[in-house]
Design a binder for these strands. Structure first.
Length: 592
RNA sequence: GGGGACGUAGUUCAGUUGGUUAGAACGCUGCCCUGUCACGGCAGAGGCCGCGGGUUCGAGUCCCGUCGUCCCCGCCA
């Protein structure tokens, strides 16, 4: 192939097939860089050596597909190209076949400046010819293969589950597929194979995995596509630790396939601790945790600063930022998102001026060096109705959570803004983390009811089982997330395997027996026929590959992604369909 | 649903306070060139300034709307 020839191949007669990546026509001699997925080789058409072939080569243009037959030649010393692996040789052509021509292209795979994304997506087949995209897709293949091999080696079966399944409104919106045979009825594309994999445990398959497409009809982000790929797995009789070991195992294999060593076991952290130290359930461990410095100030100082003394006073420290200009300090404010009345003191120098004692204690407690940036996030004095909140008895109260969350968002924003100063974001620095012991329920202020924080099939902690009805706020879930550098890679749990417990959960979520049966009757029934304890997890393959590729959008590692409006610009999907198709399905379209 | 950025040759971009014929680079076409490798040189073609309204003597430039792409919030059990 085009990227494989080396000095040792000199003298061999070979055929290279590929695209004309670049052509350099010097008159009596024409050089063509011939490209395929393996790389490029320079091929030479020399008028002096072979007039007929040289003449034929004069018509070659960008992206023509050719077969060049000739002899591999060691390049003269002064003509070696050290920039490419094949640079010590070239192919002297004595037979040229033009396999296909190409119109002038909207952009070239060899272009040094990238076309904008709209262009790239419309002509995705050209974009994918670029070496970066070829590499990303190859990486994706290697990672998926390594995961398959690892899980298969651990005794997991890869089992396919249906794409045409049942809509279960709760959670993300479903993509619906109308049924022709049952007019008015719809299948739903799975948001995940959750119930199928649990049923596979009930069916005795013990260890299941699947690298599977999932579908969610929600708005997109750089790290969210409407169809995405999960590494989904489930096992019978596990402790959470066994699921974690399995994940650590296949991630080790996957990262090794991408050329990275990672250390296991991963760090573990309670949800509460993650919130207190990082203000978020997916902390980026590369940046220092923040510090509660409420005790550094006197009551009078807090009063003067109009800081709520009952709420945390968070010091965010970003190392090595150095002195900030007036404008740079002003630029911090817009990064701050206030929840629950949280306020920001972006100018620590002023606090040092007015409250030198307190500020010195803050510096000491936060272990901040002189060149580190310090920013305080505090509660405002009046707290509104905190005690009335159903979750107010939690270790981290809703009022505190608001301060932590505001500080958490600002910490990440500052870390990103000053990444070239603190240099904590080094390529290949992978900090994995298990976040555990999530609360079972989150309170939905809009609907005034408890919602499953993970999903309704997650098992509560054994010792919290008695609080399901009496005190749902305090029930912890046997749920866990695996986090890498601030990105949630995956989420899993030990599941409920007893029908009575599952019913109690549905009740806690405000669903009566009839509703629960109507939605999940088949599943509740299945639980009654000898269900083994089971649990599992699902990880986003796209996100893993994105991080390994050093990309900042999933679109860079998905061959045919969709735009923010969930469109495919190449195929131009979705489209309206014919009236005949709609009639067949018994569907009418409402016009605005 | 909300906020922000962008939209000018095939492509990536520049275009001053609203003022003559809208520029550059790459790509494309033709000619020249035997050691280039982001080859070089000369000549040339190529524009609904996203679209629709408005303000103005005059709009790529200002205003309103609309469409498209990206980022963020909401949303993503």
């Amino acid at each position: 192939m085009c990227g494989e020839l080396r000095l040792a191949d000199a003298g061999k007669k070979v055929v290279l097939m590929g695209w004309v990546n670049r052509r350099r026509d010097l008159g009596q001699i024409i050089f063509v860089d011939l490209r395929d997925r393996s790389g490029v080789t320079q091929v030479v058409f020399n008028h002096e050596l072979n007039t007929a072939v040289h003449q034929k080569a004069e018509v070659l243009r960008n992206e023509f597909v050719i077969a060049a037959t000739g002899t591999v030649k060691k390049r003269d010393h002064d003509t070696v190209n050290t920039n490419i692996p094949t640079g010590e040789v070239e192919l002297v052509v004595d037979e040229l076949r033009i396999l296909n021509v190409s119109k002038p292209l909207p952009f070239l795979p060899s272009d040094t400046v990238l076309a904008n994304e709209e262009m790239r997506l419309k002509y995705r087949y050209i974009d994918l010819r670029r070496d970066v995209m070829q590499h990303n897709i190859e990486l994706r293949h290697k990672v998926a293969l390594a995961i398959r091999e690892d899980l298969s080696g651990r005794g997991f079966y890869e089992i396919e589950t249906p794409f045409m399944t049942r809509s279960t409104p709760e959670g993300a919106r479903d993509y619906l597929v109308p049924s022709r045979v049952q007019p008015g009825s719809f299948y739903a594309l799975p948001q995940s194979p959750q119930l199928f994999k649990q049923i596979l445990m009930i069916s005795g398959f013990d260890k299941y995995f699947q690298i599977v497409r999932c579908f969610r009809d929600e708005d997109l982000r750089a790290d969210r596509q409407p169809e995405f790929t999960q590494i989904d797995l489930e096992m019978s009789y596990p402790q959470p630790e066994q699921v974690w070991e399995t994940v650590e195992g296949f991630l080790t294999a996957a990262f090794k396939a991408a050329g990275h060593e990672i250390k296991t076991p991963f760090m573990r952290m309670d949800y509460d601790e993650a919130i207190r130290k990082y203000g978020i359930d997916k902390p980026d461990l590369r940046v220092p945790a923040f510090t509660d410095v409420a005790d550094c100030f006197s009551a009078e100082d807090l009063e003067t600063l109009a800081i709520n003394k009952d709420l945390p006073v968070i010091a965010i420290r970003i190392p090595n930022v150095g002195e900030l200009s007036r404008k740079e300090r002003d630029d911090i404010k817009p990064l701050f998102v206030s929840k629950g009345g949280a306020r920001v003191f972006e100018d620590f120098k002023r606090i040092e001026g007015k409250f030198p004692d307190g500020a010195a204690k803050v510096r000491a407690k936060a272990e901040a060096a002189a060149e580190d940036l310090l920013v305080l996030v505090v509660g405002s004095r009046q707290v509104t109705g905190g005690e009335a909140h159903p979750a107010s008895k939690r270790k981290v109260t809703p009022a505190e959570l608001a301060i932590y969350a505001s500080a958490g968002i600002l910490r990440v924003a500052l870390a990103q803004k000053y990444s070239d100063r603190h240099k904590l974001f080094q390529k290949g620095d992978y900090r994995f983390l298990w976040v555990t012991n999530f609360p079972m329920f989150e309170y939905d202020e809009g609907e005034k009811r408890w919602m499953a924080a993970h999903h309704p099939f997650t098992s509560p902690h054994d010792e919290d089982m008695d609080k399901l009805e009496s005190d749902p706020a305090m029930v912890r879930a046997l749920a866990y997330d695996v986090v890498l550098n601030g990105t949630e890679l995956g989420s899993g749990s030990i599941r409920i395997h007893r029908q009575d417990v599952q019913s109690r959960i549905f009740h806690a979520l405000g669903m009566n027996d009839a509703e629960a049966r109507a939605r999940f009757g088949f599943f509740l029934e299945a639980l009654e026929y000898g269900t083994p304890p089971h649990g599992g997890i699902a990880l986003g393959l796209d996100r893993i590959v994105m991080i390994l590729a050093g990309a900042d959008s999933l679109r860079e590692v998905i061959p045919f992604p969709k735009t923010a409006a969930a469109k495919d610009l190449m195929m131009e999907a979705p489209t309206p369909v014919t009236d005949a198709q709609l009639r067949d399905l018994g569907i009418g379209i409402l016009r605005k």
